[in-house]
């Protein structure tokens, strides 16, 4: 079965590199791109709204419907699970903005609580009125779209939190990953603070929220995680060590879990793994390629 594949549909957004993209949960043709000028290092951001339609000869047509400008780079985007036209973006200035695709130019809501870059937003697909954000200030916050302030703030890590994701199976579980090399799982029903760990109590000013599980996933930064949609408690992590690792959170035993050596599979990309996505048995890993503006899906592997 080696039919020639149709060439992929292409969309180029000159000057704006994409940090994240998300399909609409309501419209199969709608895609949102979170983009940043200068690879997100400095400068403006853009939220691109894109339509993908079938064209002649099995080709896909991809068209840019509209875009919204922001004053700092956008790092992530999540569609609302209850309103087909709404979506939120995570921005480098610490703000979270909600957009309505039928309106132009300006967001319908701005939340400014995080003190550093917001790097991920994730809408719960079980508790559909809630979304989570994670930031380089070490916090994870929970939001309801119609409230002016966050409904919950957790000091999840003492360093950058790159991603926070709701479990697709359990509405109260949230996983996070961080510069500190750990992957944590928080249970929103048991909110307590972690006891200070030995020596001087640095916990006093910024008490750390207790995680139900902390996995020392890497000796370097963990940049991305994903829950397995089909097997509860199976998580994948990827990061600066160029390894994609799969964790069964019911039985964490270091060294015994399935570890995929990303170095072999990532074309020995000199750069770190940055996004990860799991299906039932397929794990897609993308990394910074030599040109940061292009993102390369490199491998599908059994896990």
């Amino acid at each position: 079965m080696s039919l020639p594949r149709a060439p992929p549909a292409l969309l180029h957004t000159p000057g704006f590199a994409h940090y994240s993209l998300a399909w609409s949960p309501f419209h199969t043709t709608r895609l949102a791109l979170a983009s940043s000028a200068n690879f997100g290092l400095v400068g403006n951001g853009r939220l691109h709204l894109v339509s993908v339609h079938p064209g002649p000869n099995g080709m896909q047509n991809i068209t840019l419907d509209k875009y919204y400008e922001t004053q700092d780079g956008l790092y992530d985007v999540a569609w609302s699970e209850i309103h087909e036209n709404q979506l939120v973006t995570a921005s480098g200035d610490g703000s979270i903005r909600m957009w309505d695709v039928v309106l132009n130019d300006l967001p319908i809501r701005v939340w400014q609580e995080h003190s550093r870059e917001v790097f991920s937003v994730d809408w719960s697909n079980i508790k559909k009125d809630t979304f989570a954000s994670s930031s380089w200030d070490g916090m994870i916050k929970l939001w309801l779209p119609d409230r002016p302030r966050s409904v919950l703030t957790m000091q999840a890590h003492h360093s950058c939190v790159y991603q926070a994701l709701f479990s697709p199976h359990q509405p109260d579980l949230l996983a996070s990953c961080s510069t500190d090399g750990t992957l944590k799982i928080f249970d929103l029903r048991t909110q307590t603070y972690a006891p200070p760990t030995g020596g001087i109590n640095t916990n006093f000013a910024t008490p750390l929220t207790a995680a139900v599980l902390t996995v020392p996933a890497s000796t370097t930064e963990v940049l991305s995680i994903d829950w397995n949609k089909y097997k509860p408690f199976v998580l994948a992590s990827a990061g600066v060590d160029k390894m994609a690792k799969v964790w069964d959170c019911r039985m964490i035993k270091l060294g015994e879990v399935g570890q995929v050596d990303g170095r072999q599979h990532l074309h020995q990309a000199e750069y770190s793994t940055s996004t990860i996505h799991t299906q039932s048995s397929l794990l897609d890993v993308a990394g910074h390629s030599t040109r940061m503006e292009s993102w390369q899906a490199v491998v599908g592997m059994d896990v």
């Binding site: 004053q71 700092d72 200035d93 610490g94 703000s95 309106l103 300006l106 967001p107 319908i108 809501r109 701005v110 939340w111 400014q112 609580e113 995080h114 002016p148 302030r149």
Partner: peptide
């Protein structure tokens, strides 16, 4: 919407643009 754009709900009373 335009009002919301400059409405900061966090600790800072400055608009986000000047903060940046």
């Amino acid at each position: 919407t335009s009002l919301d754009h400059f409405l900061i709900t966090g600790r800072f009373s400055l608009p986000s643009s000047s903060l940046l």
